[in-house]
């Protein structure tokens, strides 16, 4: 399999980088943009999603993995969120085909993916894997330890509220919303996923919900794990043909 690799830089920080993996031009059937998790502090980084990206290239997808600033290096809210919005703009500027790519966010990366499209009325298609999006509830449940308090610390110090950091997309922002839950997720409790689904349903987003039996948190983005088969199928189905 041939994988064409490139790096697209979208800002001054070394973290402002998008790792792009593509099959030969004639084989590009769909496009996927990935946002890694790691609780905004980079317990995980973009290169950790390289095996997933390469697996998707094997299916004919062009894949962009967005790196962004961690909390401790300028990514405190809304820094990382602004980065991800800028990354999407940079991709579209390079090739308009990325404008219709499916966006997939894992864990905290789901919050960033949703934030990057909220309010843009662009009808994007999103797949959220073990999502941590409602930051007030995530903090109350202790998800990621002190990750949420660190993310919003400067915003709170400036008089803001934690709830401000929770993206609230409308039906105009999304044309598809698929939520994948790992049944044995040790990092994201099912209670949080259920509450977020209820919120999105109430907002008229009609989320499609899939639960992958026996899967743990990282299994959803690991091509060596059985759970990835479900994720792969959903991404292909949601992505549709390349425009």
């Amino acid at each position: 399999m041939t994988v064409r690799e490139s790096i697209l830089r979208y800002g001054a920080s070394p973290w402002h980088r998008i790792d792009v993996y593509q099959p030969p031009q004639e084989r590009v059937q769909s496009r996927v943009v990935l946002f890694h998790g790691g609780f905004w502090r980079h317990d995980r980084i973009a290169r950790d999603l390289e095996p997933m990206a390469v697996a998707l290239v094997g299916d004919g997808s062009a894949v962009a993995v967005v790196e962004y600033r961690p909390v401790w290096d300028g990514g405190w809210w809304p820094g990382a969120q602004d980065d991800c919005t800028a990354a999407l703009d940079a991709l579209a500027e390079q090739d308009a085909g990325w404008d219709t790519a499916v966006l997939a966010g894992h864990s905290a990366g789901a919050q960033l993916a949703l934030a990057a499209v909220a309010g843009r009325s662009a009808g994007r298609r999103l797949v959220l894997l073990a999502p941590v999006v409602d930051l007030e509830r995530a903090a109350a449940l202790g998800v990621g330890g002190s990750a949420v308090p660190h993310l919003v610390s400067r915003h709170l110090a400036a008089g803001g509220r934690c709830a401000d950091a929770t993206p609230r997309p409308t039906a105009a922002d999304l044309s598809a919303l698929v939520v994948v839950e790992a049944a044995a997720d040790q990092a994201v409790p099912t209670e949080l996923v259920a509450e977020q689904l209820a919120q999105w349903s109430a907002a008229g987003l009609a989320p499609e919900h899939r639960v992958v039996p026996q899967a743990r948190h990282m299994h959803l983005v690991n091509p060596e794990r059985a759970a990835f088969t479900t994720v792969r199928e959903l991404l292909i189905a949601t992505a549709g043909p390349v425009s």
């Binding site: 070394p14 973290w15 790691g38 609780f39 502090r41 980079h42 317990d43 980084i45 290169r47 950790d48 961690p70 909390v71 401790w72 290096d73 002190s146 660190h150």
Partner: peptide, 21 residues
């Protein structure tokens, strides 16, 4: 406290994060 956990079993990933720190 806001710094990440470093996975030293993946030296390339550890290098990227620790050099940034």
């Amino acid at each position: 406290d806001s710094l990440p956990a470093v996975r030293w079993d993946d030296l390339e990933a550890a290098a990227e994060v620790t050099e940034a720190i």
